[in-house]
Design a protein around this nucleic acid. Structure first.
Length: 425
DNA sequence: TCTGGGGTCCTAGGACCC
DNA sequence: TCTGGGGTCCTAGGACCC
């Protein structure tokens, strides 16, 4: 039996999240900014129509913002993560065979739904999500993930489809593919687009019927899979139990350039602690940690970029231990006289935290710290904040993110819960 | 003058994704 | 003044082995 995949994708997710708690923003242009209020990372339809492009630095569009009265928000991951979970819960309930692909997308296996019910099933799901969470979604259906992605693109862009489109059961799928430019295909980026253009392949339909071996020669197995998936051969199955991360990274630009070692140390220790928490959350240990620091790549002043990798003597996910080795690396990286813009920590050689061979001596202190960290994690999780920190992380954190347009944490922080005044009408 | 061949493992870097 | 952050997979090439 053929597999049938659906891709459910939240429309303009971050912008839609901000709108849930600001219903008056319906029909108005909304954008959400990256960390430090740097670039545009989400736009409502109105903002797109106003000519605001994805990923532009916000200072370049200040005129557009004024001109169209665009509502601007700092990124609020606590809110988006929580709303995402609610959407995913609804999907999981309706289709147990599901893969969460990103914060705002999930693949579903709909093979069990009869062909003539597919469309209705999708429409019902779409309206349920809207009703229960306030988030509008688009749903695309196909015989492979790449087909489902394509169908989703049509569901989103063709107003006649009202957010649902299926290539399965379509009378003439090739005529649909004919209209799809190559760079809309999932897995086709800048380089592949240029290659296809040079090879005289102009649409998704042409790619589907091209000589598969020729593509394989030039683009390897990745290119060949593109062709096969377009034809309906599954190369990317549903991945229901995503493996643990093999690499975990936390890095940030600072709210202002840092020059003193102590400030750089505080920020970097903070990032390392965040990495350690992510490790503990997925019950993993890291065997090496990389620290990098860099100056502003857009600055005209003196530039410096460098990194250092430290092999850890014992695999660990303990914050203080990782911070200890990270700071040794940082010390050797630091040079005076530069304005640092960003630093980061990446752990790799990640292994499961189970049955690790450690020396007896190691084991003693480690077990104690493990208990302590468990408590700290719990406190921080419940508070929804970084209440407990290591001393080196600094409580002042004037280097922290600029977020001048942050909305409240409506759903994850008690103090921010929405109050409704019933007398006010 | 002649100078194997096949295999594995590791790493860096490219390409892509949201 | 202001320019995001966190991932995965694949490939080519070097090191090393027998």
């Amino acid at each position: 039996m053929n597999k049938i995949f659906a891709l459910v994708d939240c429309n303009n997710f971050y912008a839609s999240c901000e709108r849930i708690f600001h219903p008056s923003l319906g029909g108005k242009p909304v954008v959400v900014l990256s960390n430090n209020d740097g670039c545009v990372i989400a736009r409502s339809e109105e903002a797109k129509r106003a000519g605001i492009k994805m990923a532009v630095p916000v200072f370049e569009i200040s005129d557009l913002i004024k001109q169209h009265g665009v509502h601007v928000f700092s990124t609020n991951y606590a809110l988006y993560g929580d709303i995402s979970q609610r959407v995913m819960n609804i999907l999981a309930e309706s289709s147990p065979d599901m893969e969460i692909y990103s914060i705002d997308e999930a693949f579903l296996d709909l093979s069990a739904i009869s062909l003539n019910q597919l469309q209705n099933h999708a429409i019902a799901l779409q309206s349920k999500i809207l009703k229960w969470t306030g988030i509008p979604v688009s749903i695309g259906i196909g015989y492979t993930k790449i087909q489902a992605k394509l169908a989703n693109h049509i569901a989103k862009t063709d107003p006649d489809r009202h957010g649902v489109f299926s290539l399965v059961g379509h009378p003439d799928p090739d005529s649909v593919l004919e209209e799809i430019p190559l760079n809309e295909i999932w897995g086709v980026g800048e380089k592949y687009s240029a290659f296809f253009e040079g090879a005289g392949i102009a649409s998704a339909r042409e790619l589907k019927y091209c000589d598969e071996n020729r593509i394989r020669e030039k683009l390897g197995v990745v290119g060949q899979r593109l062709v096969l998936e377009l034809r309906g051969t599954v190369c990317y199955p549903l991945n229901q139990n995503p493996a643990n991360k093999k690499e975990i990274c936390t890095s940030r630009s600072f709210g202002r350039p840092l020059t003193k070692y102590e400030e750089l140390e505080a920020a970097t220790a903070d990032y390392v602690d965040k990495v350690a928490r992510k490790l503990r959350k997925q019950k993993s240990l890291a065997q090496s940690v990389l620290i990098f620091i860099m100056t502003n790549k857009y600055d005209t002043g003196p530039k410096y970029v460098n990194y250092k990798i430290v092999k850890l003597p014992v695999p660990t996910n303990q914050s203080h231990e990782l911070i200890h080795f990270a700071l040794i690396a940082l010390k050797s990286l630091y040079r005076e006289g530069f304005r640092y813009k960003k630093s980061g920590a990446i752990v790799s050689e990640v292994i499961p935290d189970a049955g690790q061979q450690t020396s007896l001596w190691d084991e003693k202190g480690r077990a104690k710290h493990k208990k302590l960290l468990k408590v700290i994690d719990k406190i921080n999780e419940n508070a929804g904040l970084d209440v407990v920190k290591f001393a080196v992380q600094d409580t002042d954190s004037s280097w922290g993110m600029r977020q001048h347009h942050l909305s409240p944490h409506y759903t994850t922080r008690w103090n921010d819960i929405l109050e409704i005044n019933l007398d006010d009408h």
